[in-house]
């Protein structure tokens, strides 16, 4: 990083601004470069489509949950906003996508985009509330309050949302008029995976851009970020809106692939679950949400076959243990191990 010029003894010739500029660009480029492990990850994801045809339903759920967790990572991992109500964007996206398919058109891409946009508008509208002398507690309560508000609203507005019975009669046309949604979930999985991948690429570009780096600065020290000229409020509103868009698209994907929306999409446990997913995978490196979704769904699958009614207990236990051991130590373990192995080789 360019900061090492500061540690040089004063006798050293100061690099010209031109040199500094180039070095900064090079360092920025390095954070954005693709690592081999990332290619492997996506190659494996694509391979699951061909080699695990029986698991497409589960895999589709994983892709959607991964996208949802990714959206939370954008605000929590990169901007340090703690939210207990992220599920509201997921739910709004799901309901809007469902309503569009019933009242307007069954064309999936339209529903997907409009679901995302609706959530983004809500995000943009509620983001200023997060900036109020922002303490973590106020943020938690405001996000939680908004989520509960929408849950109650969807519950009461039965004429629009179907209330507790859920939104029925959703029908989604084939994608591009060619790929029909089948019962095995094959089309759904391909659809969800492609959407998640494309949005991941965009998110990756966002967080490695100067905009993304300024978010990290805000996360680490808002006051200092403000003094070096970063418009803290605007940046937080922007990333919150983007994150809401992502969550809305994830919700729309769920509505379209299951062709059903119930109140459950707005329930508190959605917001808590997605937090857990992200923590399982690790906060602040984009893959955390995706890996967390895989771990979470597999855990849920095994635990709920072992103890159908009480799998939440084991989930709670895992959370408690993770926190007591320390999140950094768990997610950092592979890296530490790798460094140690490399160190022994030298």
């Amino acid at each position: 990083m360019p900061t090492d010029t500061l540690t040089q003894p004063p006798t050293a010739v100061a690099p010209t601004t031109q040199g500094l500029h180039e070095r900064a660009l090079r360092n920025l480029g390095r954070t954005g470069r693709w690592r081999p492990a990332e290619f492997v990850f996506w190659a494996l994801a694509a391979a699951t489509f061909f080699f695990l045809p029986d698991q497409h339903l589960l895999l589709g759920e994983i892709a959607i949950l991964g996208l949802f967790a990714l959206s939370l990572d954008l605000i929590l991992g990169y901007a340090g906003i703690v939210s207990l109500g992220h599920g509201v964007f997921f739910g709004v996206g799901a309901y809007v996508a469902g309503l569009i398919s019933i009242h307007m058109t069954g064309e999936p891409i339209t529903g997907l985009l409009l679901g995302g946009v609706a959530a983004a508008i809500l995000g943009l509208a509620t983001a200023p509330l997060l900036l109020l002398r922002a303490s973590d507690l106020t943020r938690l309560m405001v996000t939680l309050g908004i989520a509960m508000l929408f849950y109650e609203a969807a519950n009461k507005a039965a004429w629009l949302t179907g209330g507790a019975d859920g939104l029925q009669g959703i029908w989604i046309d084939p994608i591009f008029g060619r790929f029909d949604f089948d019962l095995m979930g094959t089309t759904s999985y391909a659809y969800a995976l492609v959407v998640t991948f494309l949005l991941f690429l965009v998110a990756r570009r966002i967080v490695t851009s100067p905009f993304g780096l300024s978010l990290a600065a805000i996360r680490d020290n808002p006051m200092r970020a403000n003094t070096i000229g970063i418009p803290v409020g605007k940046r937080l509103v922007a990333i919150y809106t983007i994150s809401a868009l992502y969550a809305g698209i994830a919700g729309a994907l769920l509505a379209q692939t299951t062709m059903f929306v119930s109140l459950d999409v707005l329930a508190f446990h959605r917001s808590a679950d997605v937090l857990l997913v992200l923590v399982l995978g690790g906060v602040g490196y984009l893959y955390g949400g995706l890996i967390g979704a895989i771990v979470f769904k597999l855990l849920q699958d095994t635990l709920s076959t072992l103890t159908p009614q009480y799998w939440m207990f084991w989930l709670g236990l895992i959370l408690v243990v993770i926190v007591l051991i320390g999140r950094e130590r768990i997610t950092g373990a592979p890296a530490t191990l790798w460094n140690r192995v490399r160190g022994m080789g030298k």
């Binding site: 857990l276 959370l319 926190v323």
Partner: peptide
Amino acid sequence: LFSIGLVFMAVT
């Protein structure tokens, strides 16, 4: 996270 975990455990 820790206290949500405790709640899940207490409920079940």
